[in-house]
């Protein structure tokens, strides 16, 4: 009896935690998307007003922003400034691939970022600005979508975890 109770408790606990973990992903994704927008805006400033070197700008922004986005920028900047067998797009994609797990992003977000990396640094100022703005807009749209999804599912997964746990416990009891 006691063992059964403990077992049920463990099941409920685990299931709740899983529910929480899944619901957290929604929150993290919106947070990451807005961090990315912040980082891109800063990059735009660096390009328009300071004409900084891309590797320096990326490292600087990465350091001040932190989080998964910060790491992505920092890592790319470091790859570029360290040594020169990378093109920007190679360095960007390899950092993106490496940090996939930490970024909580979905396939469509990754696609936007990959397309962004292809153009980064490789046109004149005007072209860069146009491209950053386009990417920003796409990210903003994704963020809006992500928020809607988050509102729908975040609570649901949280309570679903608990409920499934309880249901399982009852069935197995």
């Amino acid at each position: 009896m006691l063992i059964k109770l403990i077992n049920s408790g463990v099941i409920v606990l685990c299931s709740t935690l899983i529910g929480l973990e899944i619901s957290k992903r929604y929150a993290f994704r919106t947070r990451e998307l807005s961090a990315l927008q912040g980082a891109l805006s800063r990059l735009e400033t660096e390009i328009i007003h300071y004409a900084s070197r891309l590797p320096d700008a990326l490292v600087r922004i990465g350091e001040s922003i932190g989080g998964g986005t910060g790491k992505l920028f920092h890592k790319t900047g470091e790859l570029l400034s360290l040594k020169k067998k990378f093109t920007v797009s190679e360095a960007w994609c390899s950092s993106l691939e490496e940090l996939k797990k930490e970024l909580y992003l979905q396939q469509e977000d990754m696609d936007i970022l990959r397309r962004f990396g292809d153009q980064l640094g490789s046109s004149d100022r005007e072209g860069q600005v146009r491209f950053i703005r386009l990417t920003l807009q796409q990210l903003r749209e994704e963020e809006q979508k992500a928020r809607a999804v988050r509102e729908k599912y975040e609570k649901m997964y949280r309570s679903l975890g608990l409920l499934v746990g309880i249901a399982l416990a009852i069935i197995l009891f």
């Binding site: 390009i47 900084s52 070197r53 891309l54 920007v88 004149d124 100022r125």
Partner: peptide, 9 residues
């Protein structure tokens, strides 16, 4: 251009 063609307009 040090990966920064935009800086060399």
């Amino acid at each position: 251009s040090d990966y920064s063609i935009y800086a060399f307009d």
